[in-house]
Design a protein around this nucleic acid. Structure first.
Lengths: 227, 227
DNA sequence: AAGTGTGAATTGATTCACAGCC
DNA sequence: GGCTGTGAATCAATTCACACTT
């Protein structure tokens, strides 16, 4: 799963939104945007919940943490709710992102359109392989690893994406942190250690498949046990 | 986060391993493998926990769900534990995987080495774009979408990876399910609906960044509030 | 009549703390 | 003496169910 263990025990920040809720807000936001594009003006908790893959009680409880933005008997105003969730998530700002490691995955990330439309701007690509310097990916040059600190400072990077092999990841992470980056998205298959106050999330493709395989296996076990 | 809502309420399968534990087992497994490669023969819960990014009480509780494989006063035998966790996760079998959608991301997934070494074998690539048929990626031909059902049946596919644009994802998912696939890893940014009994996990890159951004924002809020 | 917002109840996960074993 | 395994205690998340609003 994705790494948490980041917050000093039990503190529930200024705005007091539980972790589990924060993790679902982006989903609601996306569903709402797509409703908005289709011209839908209001939506009930039942409908929004169904499209988001949760039950309506959970949705209402989640939204209640942001404040009271629905109308009883009617539902939620789509664009108003997009606005509120977007603000809570910090989507109004634009976040500068650096991607370190431009292999297959880094390449895919650099080209991924979903970032740009959501307030994230990939401002630099960095790779250790000298053969790739100057190469052009997604309208960006690939810079040598040695430039990392300068790029972070000059471009005001606040989020670093680690898409290197496992062997390089901790070093890259340390350098990102030393340059002042305090949020890291890690695709390398190891647990990064970072000082307190730095946020890390991990996306691990093999892990996801293993979790699926576990449940898949459990299904066959069950069948094997039946009369 | 990743989609759950998959299990009929509260049922904790035959072997009774909690979800939260299952999600961490792959991490322990990976750390153990890397210890094993470095020749380490035994490890304490404290050490293993530290490398896995959890505390030792959680690790011991997690492992206790698999049975009692440690030695008091000593620790865990690395290779024995690898074996037991591997078996619990179904890593001893080999799982045939089809990847649908060979864009940047599908490409990266097809080439991702982490799968092969962990019991997953990518056996087919499928894409809707006729321009790509016959193209060769990671030692595999790209097949037309029309072949999907046949490929699943012929190659004994049990896990489908959806790496298509959102617009195509639900259709692809329906066809995977109709062909008998019961585990799906979804990279498309929407919630797939599937019949009961089909497992879905979602990896959403933009969502991960948004969660990071939320916490990042909260940090600045805090600073702004100080005297 | 329809549907939100929320206390109270429940279920699940984490942490504590220590008895038991090597 | 050191370290596992686990009940008991705590903390977090989910669900229930209904008062309240439009």
């Amino acid at each position: 799963m994705t790494s948490r263990e980041v917050r000093p025990t039990g503190v529930r920040g200024v705005r007091g939104i539980p972790d589990a809720t924060v993790a679902r807000l982006p989903v609601y936001h996306r569903v709402l945007c797509s409703l908005g594009e289709r011209g839908v003006a209001t939506v009930s908790s039942e409908e929004l919940a169904a499209s988001s893959g949760v039950n309506s009680a959970k949705l209402r409880k989640d939204l209640s943490h942001l404040g009271s933005y629905g109308t009883r008997g009617v539902g939620y105003d789509v664009s108003e709710l997009i606005e509120h969730i977007g603000r809570s998530l910090g989507l109004t700002q634009d976040w500068a992102v650096v991607i370190v490691g431009v292999g297959n995955l880094g390449h895919a990330l650099a080209n991924y359109g979903g970032f740009r439309t959501r307030g994230f701007r990939v401002v630099a690509l960095v790779d250790a392989d000298p053969a790739r310097f100057g190469e052009h990916v997604a309208d960006l040059d690939i810079h040598p690893l040695a430039d990392l600190e300068r790029l972070v400072a000059d471009l005001g990077v606040s989020i670093g994406v680690v898409a290197t092999p496992a062997s390089a990841a901790q070093d890259v992470c340390d350098r990102l942190v030393a340059s002042g980056v305090t949020s890291i998205l890690n695709f390398a298959p190891l647990v990064l250690s970072v000082p307190l106050g730095v946020g890390v999330r991990k996306v691990d493709l093999a892990t996801e498949l293993q979790i699926l395989a576990f449940h898949e296996q459990r299904k066959s076990d069950l069948v094997a046990v039946l009369p």
